[in-house]
Design a protein around this nucleic acid. Sequence first.
DNA 1: CAGTGTGAAGTTGTTCACAGCA
DNA 2: TGCTGTGAACAACTTCACACTG
Lengths: 219, 219
Amino acid sequence: MEKSLMHKDKKPVAVPEPTIRRMPAYLTLLRQLKDEGQEFISAPRLASFFNLDPTQVVKDLAYAGAAGRPKVGYVVEKLVEILEEFLGFNRKHEAFLVGAGFLGSALIQYQGFREAGMKIVAAFDTDKKKIGKDISGVPVFDLAKFRDLAGRLHISIGIITTPSSAAQQIADLMVGWGIKAIWNFAPISIKVPPHVIVQDTHIYANLAVILNKLNNAGR
Amino acid sequence: MEKSLMHKDKKPVAVPEPTIRRMPAYLTLLRQLKDEGQEFISAPRLASFFNLDPTQVVKDLAYAGAAGRPKVGYVVEKLVEILEEFLGFNRKHEAFLVGAGFLGSALIQYQGFREAGMKIVAAFDTDKKKIGKDISGVPVFDLAKFRDLAGRLHISIGIITTPSSAAQQIADLMVGWGIKAIWNFAPISIKVPPHVIVQDTHIYANLAVILNKLNNAGR
DNA sequence: CAGTGTGAAGTTGTTCACAGCA
DNA sequence: TGCTGTGAACAACTTCACACTG
């Protein structure tokens, strides 16, 4: 498909991933400003909160479909709505989580996901000691029950917080059971068929960046 | 430690951040291959694990100072050493953590940081119910004690896992107390003087990417 | 010839420059 | 004047093309 020059169309243009990644940060701040009663916000001001170029912010907001008024800026409340809609944070997203260890438990208990509409509805593990318990109201099932429930509840997001050694195997199961997107926290890259979405979140990557900057600062 | 990319006596080439972020993933896999007794690994094969371009891997490894042999590839054991050294994962990095909630507790208990040489030596909170307890052997202190200990132990990394509302304030304190790098998990951007390193890890960003891909897959 | 190593080309994302607007 | 909005210049990163090597 060619890039259309018509600006009447809603969003035919592929949104750059960096833009997508910045949007939740905008939204968090904007919700706060809204709570504080701020009515308008300009792109340069918004940019200053994140050390970004003002034009960057203008373009990002344009991708979401927002329009501002010269000299005034954007209507905060409208912007919150637009971003929530664009990101899908105002819809309900149910997820299954496999691997009820420290990280898995933390994600389950993490209040913040509610702000993004995501809810972890069940957890799975192979550890008999964990099965049958619940974590902040989220039940931990035997991994063998995963298939059953996934089919019945039409869950589309699967979260992997197992050790690396189990991750690929769990991913394969998830694929077989119809999960559409996998959020992988294990520090390996998992392989899935092209129609399945994978998002790797490797915490080491961030640590590596920090240590690298620390090293470079020292000389 | 000579670097192959340094011709003459030029200043060290700045390593692209994407490269830094990929290196821990290489390292994790390479350690595994090493344990399995693999002696050599070629860039194309390594690349296939991560769905990367082989040239990308070659260049990344060159940045770390690794050299391979045509037709054979790289020596796994040597590569592990080089990457550990380059990333600093073979050195000890002590950190303080502020905010002993779910996320903070998970990070403290997360075994994996040991693989990167990082150790959280103390946690801090303002919640009287948490102060005095310990999490997997890591003591939770009153936030007021932070300064004392930071100065005495020469801790350079500060981890923020507080609610957003407290994050900037904690960052200011950390800066005042000589912390050199801040790893921020609160979903806001914090402001620090230029000599302090900040790494924001916003979990929402990853979720946003997933939801966006899910939405686009539906049309 | 299968792989390293590297300059060149291509692609993507960011910043600049400026027109238009209230 | 301060801001939006957008095409153009620029910078960063990735992929390609190919010389080289055992």
